[in-house]
Design a protein around this nucleic acid. Structure first.
Length: 853
RNA sequence: AGGCGCGUAGCUCAGUUGGUUAGAGCGCCUGCUUGACACGCAGGAGGUCAGCGGUUCGAGUCCGCUCGUGCCUACCA
């Protein structure tokens, strides 16, 4: 078994075994939207797991005669790569710089990061990821993925950029993408907007603070509204108080005003149904913006903006007394606020609590709680909501159409559709696709700069589609000169890049070369399958359906094959941070690719699977067994002819059933059953059938019956090899090569008719019974030998087979095989209700005394 | 809090539309070098199918409830 991976991965490459035949029409193509792995990370056992599932199906479809479109993408777009390139080369991206075609990074990263233009930065990314990709490709080849390695793409490559930009421009033209200055979820560390899909909730400690607001039209010190807040530092950003419209406690106050503590700003008391009388005091403070509910209240109640947070998460300087910042006591407000300006939200919270303790506006002590807080999934600090100019793709008004797409898609397993529906129902706003980062696909447009130097965001300058891809930080819009950049009367490039999902969601279009190679596109799109894990249904799957719905008004694929996770023995998801990751290459070297694939293929669609090296060992043993059994079948096979003997016909008849079921199951993506069934058949083949026919195939019953055995053996082996081929590509190819010129992986998938052909096309259920009967009798003989702890070669003096007459009628057809394999000296029969075998072993021979020399 | 899974042998898991005595592999125990294989072969022990109730001639399987567990979504004053 050793060395099969190197031998065959080189051979498959040289022979172009997995090359996509693009001359085939769509109906003869099976196309796969392969997930592009993130190259700045490392591949782990979870990748090996899920990519094996895809490969099993790909190999099956190829053997079924389909031209398999199986590309590989590399995800080198986005923050992980941005960080890695910065550290590796010691550079930092500055999109304001012009491209320097001569730039080369120093050998060692300097202490002070070098600023480079965005195109230079992207070049460095391509350089670094090219090395990562080589390592990845080698692992994939070693695992035996039947990818067409001539068809690779990168999510930051020119094709991906062009298609991302093209799709965006068309969405813009159709009003499906729009720009808006609006409150947006914002990460203060990455200093970028983020999308709903990138949020995660984390439990964080917090505290309720009870604060009182004086009623403005009451006598000072006589009337207050109390509220609870976890974010007292946002009191200066308070624009109103709110309570439920039916809440009797606050009804008299609606429409009146209160005065904010410390800052003396008058804010109205308003009513809104979202205010929960059960929460806190029943009244809440509306700030711009403390959470998403604030945004809803602010919008629906038509409140003003009074923002205090800056993009870096610190409180900005504010001058009280000006428009929007009128105060009853400007010097006092300013004095309090100046102590907060420049502080982070957390520090400002501590400071303002001290201030309110002094003034008596804080009632009682703070009450610590633990509450769920929204964070960017890659971030460490809670998200803020800041008003900024962002690009959005419409989702909200297309929810019904998207749900319909979800129903149209065939999910494996079907219940995964619920996650999609769940997500669509829970959408809170359109998809924010712009990021204030450097490394990514730029938005392909510029704006006119007014005479006063300000940017006119309404006056967009769009490139023609033929110019794409463009980088507006270095490219110049048509009709302008480079020296007009950022000049009055000139132009300014859009500074943002797209969310990585905005590109990843186009993988079917990128791989199929949408609007670039219409011939190829027509042959592979919409694709057959998207394989992916369940955790990114809300991102990758949803976004891809959305984009395809807009771009081509179709589903991007017919099937979604959802894989589970690999869990460590403690049932936790295996992950790098938990330090329990096993390197895939080590596993492949230890257990062999076939062994590892055997374990991976045991994980059903959607089901999380325990990491289990024991199963890899089992798979490895299966591969070895396959080599040995094949050696027996193929070594000195003798002539093979018509399959006439009952056990031989029984073998092929039961194999025909396996073939039929396996084909149906693989069509349904139920690959685990196929492996189980084939394996089970194979062990019965080895342990029972081979033992029954061993003597006969050597000629003990004459040439005709030897030819029957050989015919069945060769047919069964050929069939089993092909059934195993999608799962164990290396060992099956090795064995196949002993008797064939071509690859087993391009051989035809077996059919029941083909298996039955040596039996004259007859599928004889009586033959199956006969084989089972013989196996049962043989088992009883073995059991007796085992119980008496005698060697298996011990002869059977007498075997009495008691059985119903219908079974006994089968005995003559298998008697010779049974006598030979069981070493039966005398065989007797008797009628009985149930099958029962009484075995008497030959007496133990007296040991032959050793001769003294 | 809602949604979707899962709970079967010590471990990892099968168990199709309800139908004889609930299966496999690993591990464990006992033997055996049988003309491909000791990286092997044969045999064995081991289960109140999470619990309770219901439908049915019949329930691991269908229905309801409970418990445990995991994920998805939400909850953030």
């Amino acid at each position: 078994l050793e060395g099969l991976e190197q031998k065959w991965m080189a051979r498959w490459d040289a022979d172009a075994t997995y090359r996509f035949d693009r001359s085939r029409p769509r109906a003869q193509v099976y196309s796969i939207d392969t997930p592009p792995p993130t190259v700045s990370g490392s591949l782990h056992v979870g990748h090996v797991f899920s990519y094996t599932h895809t490969d099993v199906v790909a190999r099956f479809q190829r053997m079924r005669g389909k031209a398999v479109f199986y590309p590989m993408g590399w995800d080198d777009n986005g923050l992980p790569t941005e960080r890695r390139v910065q550290n590796y080369f010691g550079v930092r991206c500055d999109p304001s710089l012009p491209y320097d075609p001569t730039f080369l990074p120093p050998d060692k990263p300097p202490k002070q990061a070098i600023s480079v233009s965005r195109p230079n930065f992207i070049e460095l990314c391509a350089r670094l990821t090219a090395e990562d990709e080589k390592v990845f490709e080698h692992l994939w080849r070693y695992l035996g993925l039947s990818v067409d390695w001539q068809m690779t793409y990168a999510t930051i490559g020119p094709r991906a950029q062009r298609i991302s930009q093209l799709s965006f421009l068309r969405l813009l033209q159709r009003g499906l993408a729009y720009q808006l200055e609006a409150p947006t979820l914002w990460d203060v560390d990455f200093r970028t907007a983020v999308a709903q899909a990138e949020l995660e909730d984390r439990e964080q400690p917090g505290a309720y603070h009870r604060i009182r607001f004086a009623v403005a039209d009451a006598d000072p010190g006589t009337a207050f509204i109390e509220i609870d807040t976890t974010r007292p530092e946002l009191i200066p950003a308070c624009v109103a108080l709110v309570a439920h419209p039916d809440d009797e406690r606050f009804k008299p106050l609606f429409g009146r005003e209160v005065i904010t503590p410390l800052f003396g700003v008058k804010v109205p008391v308003r009513a809104h149904a979202l205010a929960d009388p059960e929460k806190g005091t029943g009244a809440a403070m509306i700030c711009t913006f403390g959470d998403v509910t604030d945004v809803i209240w602010w919008r629906e109640l038509g409140l003003p903006v009074r923002s205090v947070l800056q993009p870096n998460g610190a409180l900005r300087p504010v001058t009280f007394g000006g428009a929007g910042w009128e105060s009853a006591d400007v010097p006092r407000a300013q004095q309090h606020y100046d102590q907060l300006a420049g502080l982070s939200a957390v520090k400002a919270r501590v400071r303002i609590v001290d201030q309110m303790k002094e003034t008596g506006d804080l009632l009682g002590d703070k009450r610590p709680i633990t509450h769920a807080v929204k964070l960017y999934e890659k971030g460490d600090r809670p998200l803020e909501i800041l008003t900024s100019r962002q690009w959005f793709i419409r989702t909200m008004e297309h929810r019904e159409a998207l749900l319909a797409r979800g129903r149209e898609l065939q999910w494996h397993p079907p219940y995964m559709q619920a996650r999609f529906d769940n997500w669509v129902h829970g959408l809170a706003g359109d998809w924010c696709v712009s990021r204030q980062r450097f490394f990514g696909v730029p938005f392909p447009l510029w704006y006119q700069v007014r005479a006063d130097g300000s940017i006119d965001y309404e006056a967009r300058l769009l490139p023609s589609e033929g110019r794409l891809p463009v980088d507006p930080s270095t490219d110049v819009p048509d009709g302008y000169r480079p020296d007009q950049r950022n000049q009055p009367g000139g132009f300014a490039g859009d500074p943002d890049v797209m969310d990585t999902w905005a590109t990843s969601s186009l993988t079917p279009q990128i791989a199929a070369r949408w609007e670039e190679d219409p011939d190829l596109f027509a042959r592979v799109f919409p694709m057959d399958v998207r394989p992916q894990a369940h955790d990114i249904i809300r991102t990758w799957l949803f976004d891809t359906v959305l984009r395809s719905h807009f771009d081509v008004e179709a589903l991007p694929w017919q099937h979604a094959a959802i894989s589970g996770w690999v869990l460590d023995p403690d049932r936790k998801k295996m992950s790098k941070s938990k330090g329990n990751v096993v390197t895939p290459m080590g596993l492949l070297e230890e257990h062999g690719a076939d062994g590892v694939r055997y374990w991976a293929a045991s994980g059903r669609s959607g089901t999380d699977t325990a990491f289990d090296p024991g199963q890899m060992k089992v798979g490895r043993r299966l591969a070895i067994k396959l080599l040995n059994a094949s050696k027996f079948v193929l070594a000195n096979p003798g002539p093979h002819g018509a399959v006439t003997a009952a056990v031989d016909r029984g073998l092929l008849a039961s194999l025909a059933v396996i073939v039929r079921e396996s084909t149906d199951d693989l069509e349904q993506y139920h690959y685990t059953r196929v492996l189980e069934r084939t394996e089970s058949f194979f062990w019965t083949f080895c342990d029972d059938y081979l033992e029954l026919v061993k003597g006969r195939r050597y000629g003990d019953q004459g040439p005709d019956l030897a030819a029957s055995a050989n015919g069945a053996l060769v047919t069964a082996l050929s069939t089993m090899l092909r059934l195993f081929a999608p799962f164990l590509p290396f060992v099956t190819e090795e064995v196949w090569s002993w008797g064939h010129d071509g690859s087993v992986h391009t051989a035809a998938w077996p059919t029941a008719d083909e298996v039955l052909a040596p039996c004259g096309g007859v599928e004889d259920p009586r033959a199956i019974e006969a084989l089972q009967f013989a196996t049962t009798v043989l088992g009883a003989i073995r059991k007796k030998k085992s119980e008496e702890q005698r060697p298996l070669k011990t002869p059977v003096a007498v075997a009495v087979v008691r059985a119903p007459s219908a079974l006994l009628a089968l005995l003559p057809s298998v008697e010779a095989d049974l006598r030979a394999s069981g070493l039966i000296q005398h065989l007797e029969t008797a009628e009985g209700d149930v099958l029962d075998v009484i075995v008497t072993l030959a007496p133990v021979e007296a040991p032959v005394p050793e001769r003294t020399p």
